[in-house]
């Protein structure tokens, strides 16, 4: 396996991590909304921001893959 292939494996690993992270955020947000439905607006925006930040990590990996190649 050459270097380029390894880059893609690395990106894949990062994306798995990001997926788990965003999944967790979504799940916890659902829990929180179920517990406090009246705060759902605030929870949703906080969830989106957190998900956006984590998503950034995955996109970093993908974009850096592009930079290296």
């Amino acid at each position: 396996m050459d270097g380029v292939g390894l880059i893609y494996v690395g990106i894949g690993l990062v994306v798995i991590g990001v997926g788990l992270g965003i999944g967790r955020i979504g799940g916890q947000a659902m829990d929180a909304i179920a517990r406090q439905p009246e705060a759902s607006g605030k929870i949703q925006s906080a969830m989106l921001i957190a998900a956006g930040l984590i998503e950034g990590v995955g996109l970093f990996a993908i974009a850096l893959g592009g930079f290296i190649k």
Binding site: G52, G56, L59, F60
Partner: peptide, 10 residues
Amino acid sequence: FALMIRLFAN
């Protein structure tokens, strides 16, 4: 940089 990459990549 994260802002840039996020929007572009999405």
